[in-house]
Nucleic acid binder design. Sequence first.
DNA 1: CCGAATTAGTTGACGCGTCAAATAAGTTAG
DNA 2: CTAACTTATTTGACGCGTCAACTAATTCGG
Lengths: 158, 158
Amino acid sequence: MAEPEWLTPVEHDAWMALAELLFRLPAGLESQLQRDADLAMADYMVLVMLSERDDHSMRMSELASSASTSQSRLSRIVARLEAAGYVTREMAPDDRRAVIATLTETGSAKLVAAAPGHVAQVRRLIFDRLTPAQVLSLTDIAGALAHPDDPASCDLST
Amino acid sequence: MAEPEWLTPVEHDAWMALAELLFRLPAGLESQLQRDADLAMADYMVLVMLSERDDHSMRMSELASSASTSQSRLSRIVARLEAAGYVTREMAPDDRRAVIATLTETGSAKLVAAAPGHVAQVRRLIFDRLTPAQVLSLTDIAGALAHPDDPASCDLST
DNA sequence: CCGAATTAGTTGACGCGTCAAATAAGTTAG
DNA sequence: CTAACTTATTTGACGCGTCAACTAATTCGG
């Protein structure tokens, strides 16, 4: 609260660079996936999160936070993926409010087909442009910034 | 092309952290601006870019690339900002295809009113969570990643 | 000069994400 | 037991961004 009201020049540069990244990088990743696999990044992430589970299943609410989206957005995404045959939805046996989304065989195949192109794009746009040291540094920085609403991670200066 | 097809574990961690950042940070910034100033980030950026010019004016196409958006998106943004009274549009005298957007007094005032809250949020979500060294590092990394379609910045390994 | 190609900007149709409200099923306190 | 609260998910309305098509002005080749 006693912080200065404006940014220092160094902070300003960092913020401008980050803002540009925030606008442009998603577009570059999105367009490859859309073009080659007809999937949005968020769709792809949802498929990935499901595929990483042994049973290829997850509750909607857990899936939403894994994929970093809102519940209502996830609901629409899964509805689309279900319509495309990539996932199924069923009531959870233990808690009848909950819904379990499950990746289908078709969905697995879709992911297997889409992954190489996407990974290549990630490599092109990100790792080909960074030194190994920068990759490590990026991991720390992104980890520190990835939870906007987490109060524990800020104001460590006391 | 001879690159490995998948990511190394270190790269995977970095990518996951960055992906989370890419999904969550914009939402955290966007919501404050929307709530307190009824502006989207992209709207705000457009106003900022105009305000940084001496004459508070810029061509649409230049404004689009400064604000890192597509032309058609910018066209809609400026239409909204014009309807709100924050900018005006007029034909360029030298090239009659071009349109010059100009920030109005009302638009300047809006920006002055919105800036402190936004800057505070940027500080909360970004700079309060990074060491000075990380801020420098972020500037370099974001600079390297901010131009997805720039062929000059990749594949320097030859 | 003239016609083809390029550049600048806008717009209609469409799909997606957000917000708030709705539904429904657990949970808790008296 | 039940009324109030919380949690899980969906959905209607609405605004925004994207894509492709369109208008119009400038430039380029011959």
